[in-house]
Amino acid sequence: MICDTYKDDLLEAAVHGQAHERLEKHLDQCASCRETLESDRAVLDRVQHLLRSRMGEEPSAGFLPRTRAQIAHDPERGWSHAWGLAAAIAGLLLIAFLNFGTSPRHSQTESNRSAAIPERQEPVVPPAQNMPSVLKASGVHTPAHAAQPAQFPMLSARAPEVLVPPDEGRAFRRFVARLAEQREIAEAFVSSPVAQTVAQQNELPDISPVEIADLRVIPLAWEMWKQPQWSGPYVARKITSGSEQK
């Protein structure tokens, strides 16, 4: 016969681990309730045993290495393809600009900035007339960083200034930061093969003036380039309407 008198109390007793006084008295007399209580306790023990064994399992040996690898290749934190492309473009810019200004054999002081900026085959003219005011004011293409050794980290002490399209500025900075992280690549970029190896005029590569947006990058005259105040063989000028700004 099934006894319903203490049905809920039995469950409570099984979960709680002990029965209250009235139930204890009832259990002394009721075999059915004793059996139910034992059964409930056995179920709970079994549940506990199963959960314990499940919750005591160890992950496989490959779990942590796999997780680490997944985190290392997480696209939301790593470099996206777009960044890679931006970095590649920025890299070209970096090569173009840094190569002109990292020759170890030249040095530059603030007073040297007032030196002339002649083109090849052109007469030397005073800088006030020659250098575009916007560039002179900002120091663009003045080799302020030329005194730094060609090896990294040359960027941190006296940072060169570079003109880039506004939307490429961040990519460019990240690229430079990446170079800072990978010294050997940085050294390959910043050591200018032209500046280090050319000793004779006839070894100078024949480069025509190049226009980039409103800037004209012009080869300097050989004799001017060899002067200590100029670290590279080029100068940039701003193009104004009709002619170059002087």
Binding site: L94, S138, V140, H145, M154, L155, S156, R158, A159, P160, E161, V162, L163, V164, P165, P166, G169, F172, R173, R174, F175, V176, A177, L179, A180, E181, A213, D214, L215
Partner: peptide, 16 residues
């Protein structure tokens, strides 16, 4: 096209 003057080396310090 407009150009912006930046100091990538100094910025690189920050990024670094």
């Amino acid at each position: 096209q407009d150009l912006t003057l930046i100091r990538p080396g100094r910025a690189a310090d920050g990024e670094w």
